[in-house]
Write a protein that binds this DNA or RNA. Structure first.
Lengths: 195, 195
DNA sequence: CATATTAACTAACATTTGTTAGTTTTGAAA
DNA sequence: TTTCAAAACTAACAAATGTTAGTTAATATG
C-alpha cells in the first residue's frame, strides 16, 4: 500500500517469464507448458491473457525496438558532436544489454521466428535504426573526428561487440557495471593497442 | 576423374545441409524432414548415415572447436610478440566467420541444445580456449604493448565484435573480404577515434 | 447478497516431431 | 549373372506441441 509499484498485469508477467525462457532455451525449444509452469498456471490458462505464442515474441521484439527508437530520436535531436552521439548510443546499448532484462537477448536472437508481416515490419524498423546510426558515423568521418572507414562495417562491429553482455553478464556478476561500460567504450574508441 | 576432389560422404553432406538449415532457422525449428528434403531423401533414410539429430549438432560443434584448438596451438607455439599472436587469432576468427560455412554460426548459437555429457564437454573446450587467449592478452598488458584493461572483457568484446559476420557476410557480398578484415582488426587495435 | 466478469481448471483436438521396423531397390564385386 | 551389402523406401509409433471447448472457481461491482 505504501509502495507505489505499478501492479504488473498478468500479461506482462507472462511476457517476462517467457522472455527468460526464450533467452535460456530459444523460442522454438520453449513450450507453452514451460511458460505456464513458470507463471504457475496451466498452459491453457495463458490464453486468457495472450492470443498466441508468437504474439509473446512479437511484443518482446517490438517493445524493445520502440525503446531503441525513442532514445535514438532524443540523441539525434541534440546538437552534440557526432562522436558524443556515438558514445551515447553505445552507452545505451551497453546498458540495455547488460542490465539484461532478457528482452535484448530475445530481440537480437529470436526475431527470425516472427512470421509475416511482423517479421518484415521488424526488419524495416531495424534498418531505419541502423541507417540513422550510419549517418552519424558518416558525419564523424567527414568532420575528421573519426578514422576513415566503411561506416557499415564499423557499425556492425561495434554493435556486435556489445552483444556478449546479454549472454554473459548475468552469469558474471563479479564484474562492476561501470568498469565493463568503460572498458568496452574505451576499447571501441581507442582500441587495445597502446599508442 | 581428373579432379581430385575428395568425394564427400553422404554423412558429410547431411551435416552440411543440416548446418545451413540450423543457421537459417535454428536447431529446434529445423526438422529431420527439412534436412531430408534438402538432401533429397526421405527422413527415415537419414538414419542409415547418422544416429540422431543431436549427433549432427554435436559433430558440427566439435569439428569446428577442433579447428580452433589446432590453430590456437600453432599460434601459441611461435615466439611471435603477444600483439601479433592476438592479430593472428583475430584474423582466424574473421576468416572462419566470414568464409562462412554455416558451421561458425551453428557452433556459436546452437551449442546450448547439446545434451549432457556433450554440452559440458563442449563448454570445457571453450573455456580452455578462452583461457589461452586471456593469457596472451595478459602478456601483452604486462609487456606494455596493450592498454591496461580487464582481459576478460577485452576478449569477449573482441570475439563478439566479429560474430556479425556469420549472419551478415553471406548476405552482403558487395563488401570485399580484405576490406572487411582490415577494418575490423584496425578498429579493434586502434579504435574508431582519430588520434 | 446477487450478479457478472475474469481467469483458472480439465479434457481433448489435430499436427508435428524424432525415430524404428520392415521391405525393396541400387550398384559394385564375384 | 548371381550375390550381398549399402542405402533408399513406406508405414507407423509414441510423445510432444500449440491451441480450443467447455466448465468451474475467484473476485469485483451493484
Amino acid at each position: 500500500m505504501a509502495k507505489t509499484e505499478a501492479k504488473k498485469s498478468k500479461k506482462q508477467i507472462i511476457i517476462e517469464e517467457a522472455a527468460t525462457l526464450f533467452r535460456e532455451k530459444g523460442y522454438s525449444a520453449t513450450t507453452m507448458r514451460d511458460i505456464a509452469a513458470k507463471v504457475g498456471v496451466e498452459a491453457a490458462s495463458l490464453y486468457n491473457h495472450i492470443t498466441s505464442k508468437e504474439q509473446i515474441l512479437s511484443k518482446i521484439c517490438f517493445s524493445l525496438a520502440e525503446t531503441y527508437t525513442t532514445k535514438m530520436n532524443i540523441i539525434i535531436s541534440t546538437d552534440d558532436s557526432s562522436i558524443n552521439k556515438i558514445k551515447d548510443l553505445l552507452f545505451l546499448h551497453v546498458e540495455i544489454n547488460a542490465m539484461s532484462s532478457p528482452l535484448a537477448s530475445v530481440m537480437n536472437d529470436e526475431w527470425r521466428h516472427l512470421t509475416e508481416p511482423e517479421r518484415s515490419e521488424f526488419l524495416e524498423k531495424r534498418r531505419t535504426y541502423e541507417n540513422h546510426f550510419i549517418t552519424i558515423i558518416e558525419q564523424g568521418i567527414s568532420d575528421g573526428t573519426l578514422v576513415d572507414m566503411d561506416p557499415k562495417i564499423a557499425l556492425y562491429t561495434m554493435l556486435s561487440s556489445i552483444r556478449w553482455l546479454q549472454h554473459w553478464y548475468h552469469a558474471n556478476r563479479d564484474m562492476e557495471v561501470e568498469s565493463v561500460k568503460n572498458t568496452i567504450i574505451g576499447l571501441l574508441m581507442n582500441g587495445i593497442q597502446k599508442s
